[in-house]
Computed example of a mutant assay.
Amino acid sequence: MNVSINTAVFLHNIEAGESQLDCLKRLSGSSIDNIEVRGEMFDDDTKDEELKRINLLCADNDWKFFYSVPEQLFNTNEINSNLKSHLEMADKYHIDHLKISLGNMSQITENQLVDLKRLLDQHTVKVTIENQPNDDGIVDVVQKSLAKLKNFDIPLGYTYDAGNWYWVFETPTDAFNHVKNYISVFHLKDIKRKQTVMLDDGATDWRTIVKQLKDDTPIFLEYDIPDNMLQNQIDLVNELINDSVVEV
């Protein structure tokens, strides 16, 4: 298994005017397993064509296609009304995984969960929810929400974001120990003074966490990385995943 790439690693390039497609082309032939694009980084005028071409790029490189939806699934007493259109988009462009923030499900009813399950079961795309850097993302709330969804047999995975815990005054390691049995996708980043930094430059004990993941859990780099450092960060994680000696 190899590390995967979220297009957040190209933030500086995209802010300079490059498309996610152009950035991803640079990864052709790289030792990565999957790519994840970000919905908020598309231009509405070119999004359709870009998604078509990213799908072809994934096929050419044998990558799985992940998509990050910049919304939350639960809005206190409502389920995101855009979910159906996101699922249909995934079908259209052969997207394998959708990720969406958890949100607040404190007043979601059993009937609403039954409807959610029915909708998700109609589509082949796998959907995961992610912990957020706000009050809805503290570990106690996330753990209880995941347990409730599992109890109702809702076909949702869980994307663990290693960085978001710092904004709710939790430590990634402690949070991991509470939710590790639910994790199906892992977003890796290191944080120092609430800023993302290169791996090993921050406070996150990322090696200990990564070594406890299930062998088939996709691990995404999800932080802005200078062009001349990207291969180093890829190699660092791949060496750990594959039990090689990691040089520091």
Rank of each mutant, 00 (worst) to 15 (best):
E36V: 02
K211E: 15
L236I: 05
L102I: 05
T109G: 12
Q231G: 00
D91G: 05
F66N: 08
L120K: 05
D153Y: 10
S244N: 15
L51A: 07
G137F: 09
N164E: 14
V179Q: 08
V179W: 09
E49S: 09
E78P: 04
D153V: 02
E247M: 10
K117A: 12
T217M: 02
A90R: 02
E222N: 01
V246S: 14
N131V: 03
K214H: 11
I129V: 09
M198H: 12
D115C: 07
I138E: 14
D43M: 00
Q212F: 10
D201S: 06
K192I: 04
L146T: 05
Q122D: 15
V139D: 08
V141E: 07
M41A: 03
I191H: 10
L236A: 11
N82I: 00
M198W: 07
C58Y: 14
D135G: 10
Q112T: 10
K52M: 12
V197N: 03
L146S: 07
K214N: 14
I191D: 13
I191N: 13
L27A: 02
K25L: 09
N104H: 06
D243L: 01
N6M: 09
W167A: 13
E239S: 09
V9C: 08
F65D: 10
K148V: 03
K192A: 14
F220W: 03
A59K: 14
V185D: 15
V9A: 11
T128L: 00
K211W: 05
G202L: 03
L57C: 10
M41I: 00
F186Y: 15
G39R: 00
E222D: 04
T109V: 08
V237R: 02
A59H: 14
I100G: 08
N131E: 07
E78A: 07
I219M: 02
L149F: 12
Y67A: 05
E110G: 12
T109K: 04
N111G: 15
T46D: 08
D43P: 00
H123I: 01
W63Q: 06
T109Q: 13
T208N: 13
N111H: 15
E78N: 09
L98F: 14
I14C: 03
Y158V: 06
I32L: 05
Q112H: 13
S68N: 12
